[in-house]
Every structure is written in structure tokens, then in C-alpha cells.
């Protein structure tokens, strides 16, 4: 088990005006899994991802990552943990316009002291797997949105994190670039046994993963597993659950 969440709750606001966004979520993620989180807009997907990835703190409950309880860690410890063990992809590509694709990808490594040949080795690895080589000297504004998001994904994988957290990574992409990116994520998931946790409101995107967790009103509503089924079949089941759940797919 790489991640174990127990009864996590998260509320926003002050004493007089609180909204409970997560109302007690339990979750177990195995090492090497590719999990999607779905749910209507405002159902707390981003909030869940943020607390699981320690970007935000829980109001109560416990989250263990490889046995270490991150809800008990000090800020400094957490920062260290995120830097070494986690990778992030967001809907916005978050690339620096002043750096080349390669420099952007190496950003997480530039914060630590890593030998140059090791840096190059890591870059070769992700660049090869994500098909970045021909882009590496270009600047973000010279490449397409899909290529930018692949750059962003390469940056998330560069330091071989234990878990990748992705919040709507395909949200700004057309369907072709989206499926291209998802195929790459799937390959990375298999090839490097990295665990991926992805928030999405798109059933097609979710069908690339091995398990889909549906949120509703701050609780886990249901879970679907792909098993050995073809992607098409899994997609249909996701669509069915979505329509039962209602209100999904219209993200503002």
C-alpha cells in the first residue's frame, strides 16, 4: 500500500460560517496504481487531491504515504517530502516562458544538488518516454498546448517521484492531444511503476486508468475497477455511473 487515507475531513471558512467539503473519506491506493477521481464540479475533487498531496492540510483524519503519516508532519518535513516523493501536473501547464522545454523539465532537479551526468540521464529517460527530444531546445510559446502539457508531465516524472498527482491534466487540451497525453501517462505508469492519481471530469480520460473513484457530496459514492476489460467497456460503465450520479461532466 502506498497511500492510505482514513476518515479525512476538510472544511473551509471560520467558526461562524463553515462548509465541510470532505466529510470522511477512506481510500487505499496500491503501489503502481493509476486511479481517477471523478465527481461533479464542486464535489471536492481538487480539495481531496490537495490534502492527499499535502498541498493543503486536512481538518481531521490521517493520511499515510508508505507508512509515514503526513498529517502529523511539520511544514519543513512536508516540503522535503513533496520535493522528493511527489510530482504534480495541473490543468495550467505552469511552464516558465523564459526557460526552454529542457530547462523547464529540469527545474525540480535544479533545486537539489544532483550531478550533471545523473541529471542528463534522468532527462534522457523522461524525454524518451514522453517524446520530448525534438522539443527540448524550444520555448513554451513555440510549441502546442499538448506539447506543453507533455513537458509539464515530463517535469513531474523527472525526479522519479513515488506518486504523481494530476488535477484535470487534460482539461485545456483538445481530444487528440488529451488521448495522446493519457496514453503517455499510462505508459509511464506501466514502465516506471509510478503511482498516478488523476482528477478528471471526463469519462474518456478516466477510462485510461485502472480504477475510478466517484465523489458525491464530500463522500466516496462508488468505485469502479477496470480489471482485464477492454477500455471501451470500462468507458461505458464509467458513463453509466456518471449518469446515475447526475450533474457530472459540466465543469464550469
Amino acid at each position: 500500500m502506498i497511500l492510505e487515507a482514513k476518515d479525512i475531513k476538510k472544511s473551509y471558512g471560520n467558526r461562524f460560517n463553515r462548509t465541510e467539503v470532505l466529510k470522511g473519506i477512506d481510500m487505499n491506493i496500491e503501489k503502481g496504481e493509476f486511479v481517477s477521481i471523478m465527481g461533479a464540479s464542486g464535489s471536492g475533487k481538487t480539495t481531496l487531491l490537495n490534502v492527499l498531496s499535502s498541498i493543503d492540510r486536512v481538518s481531521s483524519g490521517h493520511i499515510q504515504i508508505e507508512g509515514a503519516d503526513i498529517t502529523q508532519m511539520k511544514d519543513k518535513q512536508l516540503a522535503h517530502f513533496r520535493k522528493n516523493d511527489l510530482g504534480f501536473i495541473f490543468q495550467e501547464y505552469n511552464l516558465l516562458d523564459t526557460l526552454t522545454v529542457k530547462e523547464n523539465i529540469l527545474l525540480p532537479l535544479s533545486i537539489r544538488n544532483m550531478k550533471k551526468d545523473e541529471v542528463d540521464r534522468q532527462f534522457e529517460r523522461v524525454a524518451g518516454e514522453l517524446g520530448i527530444h525534438e522539443l527540448s531546445g524550444k520555448y513554451p510559446n513555440e510549441i502546442s498546448g499538448g506539447q506543453q502539457q507533455r513537458t509539464s508531465a515530463a517535469r513531474a516524472f523527472i525526479h522519479q517521484p513515488k506518486i504523481i498527482f494530476a488535477d484535470e491534466p487534460t482539461g485545456a487540451l483538445d481530444s487528440k492531444s488529451a488521448s495522446n497525453l493519457l496514453k503517455k501517462l499510462q505508459q509511464m505508469n506501466v514502465a516506471s511503476r509510478s503511482t498516478i492519481m488523476m482528477v478528471t471530469h471526463d469519462a474518456t480520460a478516466a477510462s485510461y486508468s485502472g480504477r475510478v473513484i466517484f465523489l458525491k457530496d464530500g463522500l466516496v459514492y462508488s468505485t469502479l475497477r477496470r480489471g482485464g476489460r477492454p477500455q471501451e467497456e470500462f468507458y461505458k460503465e464509467i458513463m453509466n455511473t456518471q449518469s446515475v450520479l447526475g450533474g457530472v461532466g459540466v465543469e464550469s
Binding site: 490537495n50 498531496s53 498541498i55 511544514d75 519543513k76 516540503a79 522535503h80 517530502f81 513533496r82 520535493k83 522528493n84 511527489l86 510530482g87 504534480f88 495541473f90 495550467e92 505552469n94 516558465l96 516562458d97 523564459t98 527545474l107 525540480p108 533545486i111 498527482f165
Partner: peptide
């Protein structure tokens, strides 16, 4: 300062305070 152009969540993810 250059990195602060990125979203805060991303920087927090990098381990930046």
C-alpha cells in the same frame, strides 16, 4: 523571483516554502 511566475500549488509541490 523567476519561479514565482508559476502557480503557488506548483511551487509548493516543488517543495518551495
Amino acid at each position: 523571483m523567476g519561479m514565482l511566475n508559476l502557480d503557488d500549488e506548483m511551487l509548493i509541490g516543488f517543495g518551495m516554502n
